[in-house]
Design a protein around this nucleic acid. Structure first.
Lengths: 136, 136
DNA sequence: TTAAAGTATACCTTTTAAGTATATTTATTT
DNA sequence: AAATAAATATACTTAAAAGGTATACTTTAA
């Protein structure tokens, strides 16, 4: 079905939640979990991926939590998808030619067309940022 | 990773194989399986989905096989994806609101943006047909 | 009428998704 | 300095989906 996974869906909501706070405000995991109806433990597991990408930051210890590390207009949908799922690849043969059962026939037309479609998709994901979500 | 599955990849290659034959030619499953390096039994399982969509047709009995049921220019990538995987939905909340753990908050911004992205993706899939693959 | 095809089902095995649990580290507060 | 609140690291579990295989059956040309 070509869909994003649940973790990514939760990540979108967590980032949007932080984007709605006053800039730099630190919010603990439990508050985000309750507000966005995301299983607490699961949220705790995906947050480090967003941190590694530089989308959010964290403050450890009592009174700690998470905060937005970038301006909302600089965080795109592509950033979040890549943070959680890694590079977007609509067909594995596009990253690993050995994956193809025809052994990466170099002149594969299907491959080329999928590469084109994939490029359009990533472009579209990159075209949407979180500032836009705050406005509407 | 937002990728199509293996069955769809095989289906693309099977359809392209038939599109390369002289119009209406009947080719048996084993020949397609060998030429395109697709596991025979697996190919046999996915072909009925392409038939239901009207993309290919079949001839049963001795000397039977499969043939293209449409002109290549009328078969799009979207047709094949939908035949095998059903409707393209990048997030399940887009087809089933009850799926959302926030219970389909009607004014969900993430939802709206994903719907937009999905529309662009299906448009892109529909913009590529098999006649185009024959030319290059 | 027999053999070569596709069809229908059902099964199996591996991987991935989704979520849970435990122990540990960090840092604030008292 | 101790207690406590919070994130982090790691490992485990369960369920579903992906990918493929096997068997029995139906159709039809030769």
């Amino acid at each position: 079905m070509m869909n994003i996974n649940q973790a990514t869906d939760y990540a979108f909501r967590a980032v949007l939640y932080l984007a709605r706070q006053t800039r730099g405000k630190v919010v603990d995991a439990q508050t985000i979990s309750r507000s966005e109806v995301i299983p607490m433990r699961f949220l705790l597991k995906i947050m480090p991926s967003l941190i590694k990408k530089g989308i959010i930051g964290s403050q450890r210890g009592a009174g700690g939590g998470y905060y937005l590390a970038e301006a909302p207009e600089n965080i795109t949908f592509l950033d979040v998808v890549e943070a959680i799922e890694g590079p977007v690849t609509i067909n594995r043969c596009l990253i690993d030619p050995s994956y193809c059962s025809k052994n990466g026939a170099p002149e594969c037309m299907v491959h080329r067309t999928l590469a084109d479609i994939q490029e359009k998709l990533t472009g579209e994901l990159a075209a949407h940022n979180f500032a836009e979500l705050l406005r509407e």
